[in-house]
Nucleic acid binder design. Structure first.
Length: 571
RNA sequence: CGGGGUGUAGCGCAGCUUGGUAGCGCACGUGGUUUGGGACCAUGGGGUCGGGAGUUCGAAUCUCUUCACCCCGACCA
């Protein structure tokens, strides 16, 4: 490839709307171009990286017995009606009609498609287990896109579906896939990716892991215990709340004008946040019930846990409500019809607490949970705080951000049952297979690599996924130098190396900056002064190597580096 | 959907308060001088000032309305 011919402009300044590093570099480097909310076109460098990542994934999927298929993006409604997801999935599912008025949808995941694909002909136990996978465009009408390729509406996903005759067999395969995922992420250059126990969300099923790249640009919070090396999504993480151990006191109502927030109460009464009973108000979807959660002042409500407790989708309520005095809600004497009250376990057994008095400008001190709230049921709806105790080993949790680049689910029979997939077992009995599914966001993986493999000037692509292997800079100079560079370029191409040459008549600074943005691992620089002495410069993007080499030896030297690199990859 | 913000050339921005010929830097075309970390001189092309309506002799600027996008919250690869 000649750089003079490459489509996609490299930008000197960062686009205003770009916020995170991978987004900035991918836009500035001419990898992607913004089209509309949550959708980007990809240019050649990005497409080449994408193809390489896909190939690595393909190899690893094939190694664990996967077979590649391709299902349609547009599916008929009937298929999703079989599982009920046409109705149950929210607005992120893009529904549309064809010319005949028939309901169609843009598949955002392919469990239905996969079951449909195999249910008619896999009818004997002898055909199990098997796994099929595809690389396919997914469209999810996200409420909010962000971060360039991190969160978009249209993206390529590798999605895989495995089918088994027993839960045990599924679990064994799940573990294989788990290991394959670690290999994939190591090979594409984000070995920092960890498997995190997670919530199953709309996919259903019991066991699930998210593969999270730990980095600050991540959108998820991971609860990490360094002592036992465990990782949990904060959505599911649990802890044992350390009790205050206060003394029981008599209750007293106190006039507290304009004291509403936890910080204000803490300052007014001179107590710790943990000595306050906080209330959080939510609305439940599909009902007019208000959900009020009482929780210790030093904890936040974990909405995922709360959803499970009240078995409904919720959203936070702020501001005013007709029958509630926000800022003064407390568990004592709360008279409310049509409300669900939830008490978090952080309150269990606490004494001498401050709570709202359920009337404006009043709080109550000396609230003792066991004495004053006898008989209430406690649920765990608290979000783990940094420094909390790890239940597995007694160690201390720290919180880190992570990008979810992949996930794996044990789905069980949710889809096979509803879609009436069955087979005959050894005894001629009709059985329902169990299923697992396994996803990786390819574009998100590209962005993830940039997040952790870059310097101030641009991405530093790992060799295995780099858009090209060698970048030749032909600086201004004589005709002989140009010929030498072109000769090298052609020889490398002819021998199967992936090479891009900057043949533009621009200043060295421009060439070097563009080369940094393209992030190609090996670079050969032809400059006039070195060339006069019969030399060219060989460097690496990561600055590991910087050598002057006789022009005639450049081919031998650079290909030697690459050969040893390739040897390292195959290990 | 709730809260905040921004829309002016491909990118980054000024102009708006106080209405009066649409500007700057980068990028792009041409000519020349340069040439190892984003060179310089000269010259040129590129705009429904997000859209619509209104006020006005006159609107990028004021009013109303609408759309798009960005940021903070609820969803996910």
């Amino acid at each position: 490839m000649l750089l003079s011919n490459l489509l996609g402009e490299r930008l000197r300044e960062k686009p205003t709307d770009a916020k995170i590093l991978s987004q900035i570099f991918l836009l500035r480097g001419g990898y992607i171009k913004y089209v509309s909310n949550g959708s980007y076109s990809m240019l050649l460098p990005c497409v080449r990286i994408k193809a390489k990542i896909e190939n690595i994934i393909r190899e690893e999927m094939n190694k664990i017995g996967g077979q590649e298929v391709l299902m349609p993006v547009v599916l008929p409604r009937e298929l999703w009606d079989e599982t009920g997801r046409y109705e149950s999935v929210g607005a992120e599912l893009l529904r549309l009609k064809d010319r005949g008025g028939k309901d169609m949808l843009l598949a955002m995941t392919h469990e239905e498609g996969a079951v449909h694909l195999v249910r008619d002909d896999v009818t004997s136990y002898g055909r199990f287990p098997f796994m099929l996978y595809q690389f396919q465009t997914k469209f999810r009408d996200e409420p909010r896109c962000k971060g360039g390729l991190i969160r978009v509406r249209e993206f390529t996903m590798k999605d895989a579906y495995s089918f088994h005759t027993s839960q045990k067999d599924l679990e064994e395969y799940y573990n294989k896939c788990y290991a394959a995922y670690h290999d994939i992420f190591r090979r594409i250059g984000i070995s920092e990716t960890v498997a995190v126990a997670s919530d199953t969300g709309m996919m259903g099923g019991k066991v699930a892991h998210e593969f999270m790249l730990l980095c600050d640009a991540g959108e998820d919070t991971i609860c990490v215990c360094k002592d036992c090396n465990s990782y949990e999504n904060i959505e599911v993480a649990k802890t044992e709340v350390k009790k205050n151990g206060g003394q029981e006191r008599a209750r007293a109502e106190e006039y507290t004008p304009d004291i509403e927030t936890i910080d204000q109460i803490s300052a007014h009464f001179g107590v710790k946040k943990s000595e306050i009973i906080k209330s959080a108000v939510f609305a439940a979807e599909g009902s007019d019930k208000t959900v009020i959660v009482f929780i210790r002042g030093d904890y936040e409500v974990n909405e995922t846990k709360l959803k499970k407790v009240i078995k409904a989708n919720i959203f936070p309520l702020e501001g005013k409500s007709a029958d509630l005095e926000f800022g003064y809600i407390g568990p004592l004497g709360l008279k409310l019809e049509n409300a669900v009250l939830v008490y978090d376990r952080s309150l269990e057994g606490e004494k001498n607490m401050i709570a709202g008095a359920n009337k404006k400008n009043y709080h109550i001190s000396g609230v003792s949970v066991e004495r004053d709230l006898a008989g209430v049921v406690f649920d765990d709806v608290a979000k783990v705080n940094e420094g909390d105790k790890c239940l597995k080993c007694g160690g201390t949790y720290i919180l880190q951000k992570g990008i979810e680049v992949g996930n794996i689910f044990q789905l069980g029979k949710k889809y096979t049952e509803s879609m009436k997939m069955s087979y005959l077992d050894e005894n001629g009995q009709s059985k329902t297979p169990v299923m697992g599914c396994y996803g990786i966001g390819v574009g998100r993986a590209i962005a993830s690599v940039v997040e952790v493999r870059h310097d101030d000037f641009g991405p530093i692509w790992p060799y295995a996924i780099a858009p090209w292997h060698i970048h030749i800079n032909l600086l201004s100079g004589g005709e002989n130098m140009r010929k030498a560079a072109v000769t090298l370029y052609n020889k490398l191409l002819k021998n199967g190396y992936e090479v891009i040459m900057d043949d533009r008549k621009v200043s060295a600074g421009v060439q070097f900056n563009d080369a940094d943005l393209l992030g190609v691992p090996y670079r050969v620089i032809f400059g006039a002064k070195n060339f006069e002495n019969g030399l060219a410069e060989l460097t690496t993007r990561d600055k590991r190597i910087k050598r002057l080499i006789p022009v005639n030896d450049v081919y031998k030297e650079v290909t030697a580096y690459i050969k040893s690199e390739v040897k390292g990859l195959s290990k």
